[in-house]
Amino acid sequence: MLSDYLRDQDGVITLAQARDAGLSQRAVQYRVRTGRWRRCAVGVYFVDDRPFTDAARVRAAVWGHGPLAAASGLTAAWWQSLTQFAPNKHEVTVPRDSHGRPHDGTRVRRRDLHPADVIEVRGVRVTAVPLTVVEAAVRRRDGAKLLDSALQRHVDLESLWRTHLRNKGRTGAPRARRLLQAASDGARSEAERRILALLRGAGITGWKANYPVGGYRVDVGFPSAKVAIEVDGFAFHSGAQEFQIDRRRQNAIVLRNWQVLRFTWLDLVEYPEKVIATIRAAIAAR
């Protein structure tokens, strides 16, 4: 039984599990004292005959903060294969009244999670996919890509909104709301209004909205500079047919010697200065 625990749990074991496998507390202490086991936290050990992998770190981090702790944020995203790389510092959410202190390599968030927002994956409590997505997306500069990828494969927009509204007081909630708005069906028209407002606010002239180029209409066109601005939506709204049409459209515009700049709704909200700087550079170069 001990070998099964260690094999299935990346070399991490709790004191309760060790006792179930037939070891006394004295036997566990002997293994720690002789260096065969490493103590990660109270009642959590790592058998030091193998690499201390990212998976082992996650198990030790979560189990070390008690039975009601759950991996969250980018840690939960990696554990559920929503991201490729484990974060350097693991995020663990514990109940508000938890008295434990953070361990090395962990970031503790104190919040009472709704039962619907917690699941168990491979023996570790983690935030459910919808909450994981809305929390992890705000931890990354490319959070819109993470959200878009999850919408294409794992969750729907309605479940993300429900989860967001159920957890409005959490860290990063305002940015999560902006990301979800960007993913909503009406975001494109709102983005078009925002780009026009940005151009007016920056005092940039010489543009026309919905300008015809090559049989198509671009969101904003600078006829003299031959620069087109397009606002992109989220990929999960688009199928293969829309993808092909969009590429044919851009090719037709480029073949008429126009430069195409593409921005997302998130670009316009989060990085308006960079958007304006890019547009200024493009029209000045032409």
Rank of each mutant, 00 (worst) to 15 (best):
D4V: 14
Y5E: 03
Y5M: 05
R7E: 12
Q9N: 11
V12T: 09
T14I: 06
R19M: 14
D20C: 11
Q29V: 11
R31P: 02
T34S: 12
G35D: 11
R36F: 08
R36S: 12
W37G: 07
R39L: 12
F52Q: 05
D54M: 00
D54S: 09
W63P: 03
A70G: 03
W78C: 02
Q80I: 05
L82C: 05
L82E: 03
T83L: 07
P87T: 02
K89L: 15
R96V: 12
D97E: 14
D97S: 13
H99R: 15
H99W: 09
G100W: 04
D104S: 13
D104I: 13
G105P: 04
T106M: 01
R107P: 02
V108P: 05
R111A: 10
A116L: 11
D117W: 01
I119T: 13
G123W: 02
V124A: 04
V124L: 05
R125L: 11
A128D: 09
V129P: 04
P130V: 04
L131D: 01
A136K: 01
R140K: 08
R141K: 10
D142C: 03
A144W: 07
L146K: 00
S149H: 14
A150C: 12
L151S: 11
Q152M: 13
R153V: 15
H154M: 10
D156A: 05
D156W: 02
E158L: 14
E158N: 07
S159N: 05
W161V: 06
W161F: 09
R162I: 11
R166K: 07
P174E: 00
R178I: 08
R178T: 10
Q181R: 10
A182P: 07
A183T: 10
A183R: 01
D185P: 12
A187N: 03
A187I: 06
S189V: 15
E190S: 14
E190K: 15
A191N: 08
A191T: 05
E192G: 14
L199F: 12
A202V: 11
G203V: 09
G203K: 04
I204G: 08
I204Y: 09
I204P: 08
K208V: 15
A209F: 12
N210R: 08
V213G: 05
V218G: 08
D219I: 02
P223R: 00
K226T: 09
A228L: 06
A228Q: 02
A228V: 05
A228W: 03
A228Y: 02
V231L: 15
G233T: 07
F236I: 01
F243L: 08
F243A: 15
F243V: 12
F243W: 12
D246P: 09
N251R: 00
V254N: 13
V254Y: 06
L255R: 10
Q259E: 13
V260R: 00
V260W: 03
V260G: 10
L261G: 09
E270R: 06
Y271W: 14
P272E: 10
A277C: 04
R280Y: 06
A281H: 05
I283K: 00
A285R: 08
